[in-house]
Simulated assay, not measured.
Amino acid sequence: MSQPENTAQPENTIQPAANGLSIILFAGGFDRVHYALVMASAAAATNRPVTLFFTGRALRALVQENEPGVLGWHDLDPADDGSTPVARDRYFATHGLASFEELLGACVALGATVMACEMGIRALGLPSGVSLRPDVPVKTGGVVTFLNEAPKGGAMLFV
């Protein structure tokens, strides 16, 4: 007589639907947004579905500035050490740490979903039809859209 096949999965196995990461980027401090990109790119690199929802002051990171060479993240709030975002990013780059552009580029290349909150755009006082970065595929939507698109059962962080 044959034994029934055991189809139960070990308790420590991560199920595909439960291994995603959703990050709500609200705070506009450079270090907070930078580290959220660290987390997102690492999760995407390990084949986890990732959703980044930019709102509040963090939305500055996605704004397309009119001045050549100036990116929206340059207007994020100062880093935790009081330095400007550009100075802090330069420090990271010269010390072997990923720069803001490298991390954001990795998130895009690895298929992370990037969303901009419609309400956040209005609350920040950005003009209607504000240009977002053309090199980042950004979906606009509200909280309901974000919650519907966030990986079900995955971790959700508020930064």
Rank of each mutant, 00 (worst) to 15 (best):
W73C: 13
L71T: 07
T113P: 03
V108G: 03
E67Y: 01
G56E: 07
G56C: 05
M39H: 10
W73M: 11
R60L: 05
F92W: 13
G105N: 10
R48W: 01
R48T: 07
R48F: 02
F92P: 00
P78C: 08
P49T: 06
A109N: 10
A58D: 03
G72P: 09
Y91H: 13
A58W: 00
V38E: 11
P78A: 14
C117F: 01
A61S: 15
A93P: 00
V63D: 12
L104P: 04
S99M: 04
A44E: 06
R90A: 15
L52H: 05
A58C: 12
A106K: 03
L37H: 09
E102T: 15
C117E: 09
A45W: 02
G105D: 05
V86L: 12
A79D: 11
T84Y: 06
H74C: 13
H74N: 15
D77C: 02
T51W: 03
L71P: 00
P49V: 06
A93G: 04
A106F: 01
F92V: 02
S99P: 10
N66M: 10
L103T: 08
A42K: 03
E102C: 00
T84F: 05
A61I: 07
C117D: 13
A58R: 02
G96P: 10
L59E: 08
A61M: 04
D75H: 14
T51I: 08
F100M: 15
L104W: 02
G120I: 08
E67A: 11
P78L: 10
Y91L: 11
P85Y: 01
T55L: 06
P78R: 12
V108P: 01
L37G: 13
D80M: 13
A112Y: 02
V86S: 01
G96S: 06
E67G: 03
V70Q: 15
E65N: 10
R48D: 07
A98D: 11
G82D: 09
G111W: 09
F53V: 07
G56F: 10
T51L: 15
Q64I: 00
W73Y: 12
E118D: 15
N47Q: 15
V38R: 10
V108C: 08
A45C: 08
A106T: 09
L97R: 12
A40C: 08
L103F: 07
M39R: 07
I121Y: 03
Y91P: 00
G111C: 11
A106H: 04
A79S: 14
G105V: 04
T46N: 15
F53H: 02
M39Q: 11
V86C: 01
L103C: 09
R32L: 12
L52N: 08
L62S: 12
T46L: 13
R90W: 00
V114S: 02
T113C: 03
V38H: 07
E65L: 10
A98F: 03
C107H: 01
V63N: 09
L97Q: 14
E67Q: 14
R88G: 06
R32I: 13
S99Q: 02
T94I: 05
D77S: 13
G96Y: 04
Q64E: 15
H34L: 13
L76H: 13
T46S: 15
